[in-house]
């Protein structure tokens, strides 16, 4: 009896968390799969069981170069654009920030970390203005560097670059904080030993900092890939998925299919299932690819 009461008490403390997560995280795994096997009839709105038809349709679009092919391509290009750029900049800044300066280091950190508190909606609005060809700063700035003005948001070639820049910026604060923590974890004795051996700055970065930072880089890569596959707010505000479908990534297509105009929630759920699967697979591939080269000290 006493044991039963003890168990009951434990579950009482867990109950609120278990109930919320059960209803809003675990149950949807099931119900969203069920929904992905259905379609709403055009007249009357009855829900029809269609088996794997939605998945079949996605497969056909994929191999025929249709919409789903486009969305997958946009997601992957976006990931390839944001993740390496974001991490390289973050690591370079982290190495610079770790340089022991006596003055103003609080100010450097404040300025570089500040994007962590900026939401994707605000990022979208500010960058939308910066990209404006008439009153925005972006073309002015690249003009100072000698480049021609660019139609950031209305050109098919540049829209994805524009979204990429905005998202790299918003993620920068977070990435630098994680990278800096990694750099500061490296034991100073390694550097001292290298200095005795006469290694210059580049050698120290190349042969000490980067290898010892590999667990951090590994973590950053996974988090950034997952975040970039989930990027929604900036796209919604900057380009609305356009021009054409140039910035419609997988999550944006899911949103449009499920919530804009006539809802196709079965079809959207099938896409959501595949995106979730992709996120899990990506993590596994990266883990195996990186795993061999990661140095755990």
């Amino acid at each position: 009896m006493k044991k039963f009461l003890k168990t009951a008490e434990g579950y009482l403390y867990l109950a609120p968390t278990l109930i919320i997560l059960g209803i809003f995280v675990y149950w949807p795994i099931v119900s969203s799969f069920q929904m992905s096997l259905t379609r709403v009839a055009p007249f009357g709105g009855a829900v029809i069981d269609v088996g794997l038809e939605n998945y079949q349709r996605l497969w056909n679009e994929l191999i025929s170069g249709g919409e789903y092919y486009n969305n997958l391509k946009v997601s992957l290009l976006f990931t390839l654009g944001t993740v390496p750029t974001g991490i390289v900049i973050a690591v370079a800044l982290a190495i610079a920030l770790a340089y022991p300066l006596r003055r103003l280091s609080w100010l450097h950190r404040l300025l570089i970390f500040v994007p962590i508190v900026i939401s994707s909606a605000v990022t979208g609005v500010i960058f939308r203005w910066m990209y404006n060809p008439a009153v925005g700063y972006m073309n002015h700035w690249i003009g100072l560097l000698g480049f021609e003005p660019v139609n950031w948001l209305t050109s098919k070639d540049w829209a994805l670059v524009a979204v990429t820049l905005a998202v790299v910026w918003r993620q920068l604060g977070f990435n630098v904080i994680i990278a800096l923590a990694g750099v500061q974890n490296i034991d100073a004795t390694y550097y001292e030993a290298a200095k005795v051996d006469g290694a210059n700055l580049w050698h120290r970065v190349r042969h000490i900092t980067l290898p010892l930072l590999s667990p951090t880089l590994f973590f950053l890569t996974i988090i950034n890939v997952i975040n970039s596959l989930q990027t929604f707010g900036e796209i919604n505000i900057l380009t609305d998925g356009g021009p054409g479908q140039a910035t419609t990534n997988m999550i944006y297509a899911i949103y449009v299919d499920a919530f804009v105009g006539t809802p196709f929630r079965g079809y959207a759920s099938a896409q959501a299932y595949l995106l979730a699967l992709l996120i899990v697979i990506m993590s596994i591939i990266q883990f195996r690819g990186f795993g061999r080269r990661v140095h755990y000290s």
Binding site: F24, V25, Y26, W27, P28, I29, S31, S32, M35, I226, Q230, I251, I254, A258, F259, R265, A268, S269, A272, Y273, L275, A276, I279, V280
Partner: peptide
Amino acid sequence: MVPFQLTFIPNF
């Protein structure tokens, strides 16, 4: 590990 993409339509 369950991404928000999977849950937001049924939750809606």
